[in-house]
């Protein structure tokens, strides 16, 4: 028997496979109510699946054309979602909770894409060995970020007052390495890639990471886990397009897990990180697949409980006025 096929056989089998898959693609494309979807993203890891999904054509094969819009901060992204300028947004949960607390019903939380307990934390000079050693020191952190919440929490755990015992300085995450290197601060709380950059420095040590956050110990819940949100108007009008988007999103996150090298190479345009460093960042992320989403996002699941506890924490630390009932924003029915 000949092990190889003739040219005619190859062409015939290719034609059969095209004909076999075309109706599926056409059906998916024809099913969605709208083909145009806008997404608010940034170079942060929570947005990797959408970037990969665009590059690999996962959205396209479901009939969706995704318009990537870049936003520097979660609050700017969520502001655009609330104003109806974008349809989907990945965001840190603190911005989502703040928007809920402000009374906006403009969005649903539909997924918790990943967890990353080891790429965010406090980096300090070698002489600072415990959180208590931060007393009287200067600590740079981006206010209203997950790192800020981490700082408030660990200081509270150590019995330190963030307004009196430590001088907290509001710094953009990108400026934390330069401020630390210039000795303008004694410690910084930051996240990847700044966290990875500083971790590799000689005169810097990781004082702690997200695993020291009190809710992590209780719910495996970081200080500001990412959530995927969708405009309520968009999801209600376009349930099939919403489901198709999420389907493509999870295909992309599975792809990142299975093909990290190719994913790292595709992400370089977005993050500008060297391939090795990009691959290291990917190693630190645990992607939550579509099968687990229903379980963790369910009413009694760990994620809504943790999110509610985080809202209560923010109220206790006077970051938001009142804790929203987060259940009212979570919509798992749209999950594929």
């Amino acid at each position: 028997m000949r092990a190889t096929m003739s040219r005619r056989q190859i062409l015939a089998s290719a034609l059969i496979s095209v004909l076999a898959t075309a109706p599926l693609g056409a059906t998916l494309a024809a099913e969605v109510e709208t083909s145009k979807v806008s997404y608010g993203g940034s170079s942060w890891l929570g947005h990797y699946p959408v970037w990969i999904g665009i590059k690999k054509g996962f959205f396209e094969k479901r009939g969706l054309s995704v318009d990537w819009k870049l936003f520097g901060t979660s609050s700017a992204r969520m502001g655009a979602l609330a104003a109806g300028d974008i349809d989907f947004a990945g965001t840190g949960s603190i911005s989502a909770l703040a928007l809920m607390a402000a009374g906006s019903k403009a969005f649903y939380v539909v997924a918790a894409p990943e967890s990353y307990a080891t790429v965010e934390g406090i980096i300090a000079t070698p002489e600072i060995k415990t959180v208590k050693d931060l007393k009287g020191k200067k600590l740079g952190v981006t206010f209203a970020s997950s790192s800020h919440v981490l700082v408030l929490d660990v200081l509270e755990q150590a019995g330190l007052n963030p307004n009196k015992d430590v001088t907290l300085i509001n710094l953009p995450a990108g400026d934390t390495p330069s401020a630390f290197k210039a000795k303008q601060v004694d410690a910084v709380a930051t996240w990847t890639p700044a966290f990875n950059v500083l971790r590799a420095q000689e005169n810097a040590r990781v004082l702690l990471d997200d695993r020291e956050f009190s809710l992590y110990k209780q719910y495996q819940f970081g200080p500001g886990p990412d959530v995927l949100t969708v405009s309520r108007t968009f999801a209600d009008k376009n349930p099939k397009a919403t489901a198709a988007f999420l389907d493509a999103f999870f295909e992309a996150s599975e792809f990142i897990t299975k093909e990290p090298a190719e994913a790292a190479s595709l992400l370089q345009d977005l993050t500008q990180l060297p391939p090795e460093e990009q691959a290291n960042v990917l190693k630190d992320i645990e992607w939550t697949g579509r099968a687990e989403q229903q379980k963790i996002m369910a009413r009694e699941g760990d994620f809504p409980k943790g999110l509610q506890a985080l809202a209560d924490f923010l109220v206790r630390h006077k970051q938001i006025d009142k804790a929203p009932k987060v259940d009212s924003w979570i919509k798992t029915q749209v999950l594929p």
Partner: peptide, 15 residues
């Protein structure tokens, strides 16, 4: 960490 500009920007972050 204080000032009216800071107050506005921080308020914006928390909506």
């Amino acid at each position: 960490r204080e000032g009216l500009g800071f107050m506005i920007m921080n308020g914006k972050e928390y909506f």
